[in-house]
Design a protein around this nucleic acid. Structure first.
Lengths: 198, 198
DNA sequence: CCGAAGCTAGCACGACTGTGCTAAAACAGG
DNA sequence: CCTGTTTTAGCACAGTCGTGCTAGCTTCGG
């Protein structure tokens, strides 16, 4: 089957157009027409790549989640466990403009997922994966003696994960308050508290 | 000026209709027609109480924020500082169906506030007030010797506030995971960590 | 009982929505 | 060059949207 363009590449470019529309006008204005215009395509052409709007939005949401998780995965291993953990958690927070953009889009999709069954599945999946990642970070700290193994791992996992997402939401809502150094300081303080006593 | 019905009461009832529509269909489906039907009113009648849709949504958002903060305010003072703090924080989390409903509506509004200047102001205001409340809770603990005053108050305030909102978001997204006892356990563990050493 | 005000109801308009559909353009392999 | 497939383009339909507007209904002051 002859294919003149890379289908995945094209769909990715369209998904990025969705993100731009969401950031500029909000998810409720991410119409087929609007996204097509943003992507520089005609309406009919867009519908060749995405048969329905649901499919388009689901793809755009999955894409932003994958991008976040991929960036976490690509964090280089480090001898310093504490530095590694701080780096990974830093990849999840909106510390720069790119990640702020991702965080805003992510929040928009999560809110829509509350009333959209298709998106809800994606939200639950990413929730699962990120929670697991937080648990594994505690294991990394534990191997380096920086996590008190007397603590309840499940509770501490949820605590760390909730802290990160809470910081993210706050930074997105009030950009003036949640500056990058402040978020790093909160994160550092939390990790300090997890260390064994003494 | 003769008034046959209480205006505030009527507007409140309409706001509650907005919340029900948001929970059932999502904020993007909270149309003037849909809300009017949910409230048992005609379209024109609804427009007598709210001239525009923006005014309607802004009122509904302010209403849910006020309701949350009012409930926190009404927490009875207690001799046991720790119990008092746990109770107040518990009022913010979706520990029962009513508060789950509030939390879902709150999240929907916050996400929309990202691209809606009017709602963004409300979101920033509530953010400010709740952050202050968390700081005051730390003061309550400190007066009872349950908060290590050597800690940075601003950092710990943001940490506590982020933890609460993170728990809220997780509970809303994945109701199965974020059960009430689990959230309470995470909160309790966090407060334990804030105590002075020894 | 009457007038005025508060309140309700509903239509109409223009704009925008998602999707079905057809046809032309760009490109592939033969 | 020709043929078949991929890709683009754009119209049409039915539906929903927010809001302006007018008319009728209810209630109250006098």
């Amino acid at each position: 089957m002859p294919r003149t363009v890379d289908a995945g590449q094209r769909r990715t470019a369209i998904a990025e157009a969705v993100w731009r529309v969401i950031r500029r006008d909000g998810l409720e204005h991410a119409s087929v027409r609007g996204v097509a215009a943003e992507a520089g395509l005609s309406m009919g052409s867009l519908r060749h790549w995405f048969g329905t709007q649901s499919e388009l939005l689901a793809f755009a949401m999955r894409m932003v989640i994958d991008r976040i998780i991929d960036r976490v995965r690509e964090c280089p291993a480090s001898d310093d466990a504490r530095a590694f953990v701080e780096r990974v958690l830093g990849e999840l927070l909106p510390l720069d403009d790119d990640r702020r953009a991702e965080s805003e889009v992510w929040l928009a999709f999560v809110a829509r997922a509350l009333a959209d069954p298709d998106l809800r599945v994606l939200a639950a999946e990413s929730d699962e994966r990120l929670r697991e990642a937080c648990g594994m970070l505690l294991d990394v700290l534990a191997r380096d003696g920086q996590f008190d193994t007397a603590r309840d791992r499940a509770v501490e996992t949820e605590r760390l994960y909730a802290l990160v997402d809470g910081l993210l939401v706050h930074a997105v809502i009030t950009p003036g308050r949640g500056t990058a150094p402040r978020m790093r300081a909160v994160l550092a303080r939390h990790l300090d508290d997890l260390r064994p006593p003494g």
